[in-house]
Design a protein around this nucleic acid. Structure first.
Lengths: 146, 146
DNA sequence: CTTTACTACTTAACATGTTTAGTAAAATGT
DNA sequence: ACATTTTACTAAACATGTTAAGTAGTAAAG
């Protein structure tokens, strides 16, 4: 009995395929981030905050794919590093409202060129059409109810 | 000046889009794994070993997207739990050859049905054609040189 | 109005991710 | 043969992932 008789090849299993593809894309981004003392997670948080404005932590957790316990710790250091600011919610005092600071926004701007260059390298090899197609499929997969 | 003027929307950024899609797919798989005291990483290792037979650790790390230091620790507990076995390489004594045990294979077999059911749920909602298309694009992205 | 549930976090503990440094074996250069 | 470099890991330190438990504020039910 063949080894693959009872499971799908890992290269055709969605979770592993998504992970491997992501590793390819992240490798050069991680190189960029190492130069500016920022982790992948902090970069994601800055981008989400830049996009969403002032939001509560649960919203960041959802958008940036982080669990609240991780977020609590990460935001603590980002606040003391001056990249984000926090305040208690005015109507609902359970909530902590977070926004990006000018310093945080500056980090994004300083690394925009590198970030775009990485994206362009990938696009040059796969073609814009396929990238768009892939992004559409990923958005659709993300919306599936499981 | 609009907030999105200098960056791509995060939903159209490959790293975040890949991560979010993966979270959707992994959620029910994590539920399954919690019932059998197995982490996502150990599940991935078992699947890779089942597919590849006896291989060195570096090969597992590549295929399962784990770094060697993580793998060292994880395999230590998997060995003591009887899910894998290790031996020193015969020709090259630097290598550690790893293979899945019958007990490890049994874990895969016991959870195959659940794993397939999850895949089928997703396929039912997106359609097989789109899933195949997505997997093709992911394999292609994975092969890009960055 | 009070009790009960629920929500938005925080804390703690342990597993894994990630980087740097170290070790032993193998390959390479001279 | 010898020194040098490379390879395949392992160890340690710190950040993050993940689960379970706890806290305070809010909403719902009676």
């Amino acid at each position: 009995m063949n080894r693959q008789s009872h499971t799908t090849r890992t290269s055709r299993a969605l979770p592993i395929a998504l992970l491997r593809a992501r590793e390819t894309v992240m490798a050069p981004i991680r190189d960029m981030l190492q130069g500016i003392q920022l982790t992948e997670q902090k970069w994601r948080i800055l981008r989400v905050l830049d996009e969403m404005g002032e939001v509560e932590q649960s919203a960041i957790a959802n958008e940036a794919c982080l669990l609240l316990p991780s977020l609590t710790r990460i935001l603590r250091t980002m606040e003391s590093d001056g990249q984000i600011s926090r305040r208690q919610g005015s109507t609902d005092k359970r909530r902590t409202m977070v926004k990006i600071t000018d310093e945080g926004r500056q980090i994004l701007e300083e690394n925009l060129a590198t970030s775009l260059a990485i994206h362009n390298t990938i696009e040059a090899q796969m073609g814009q059409e396929k990238i768009d197609n892939l992004l559409d499929l990923l958005e659709e997969l993300q919306a599936v109810k499981v």
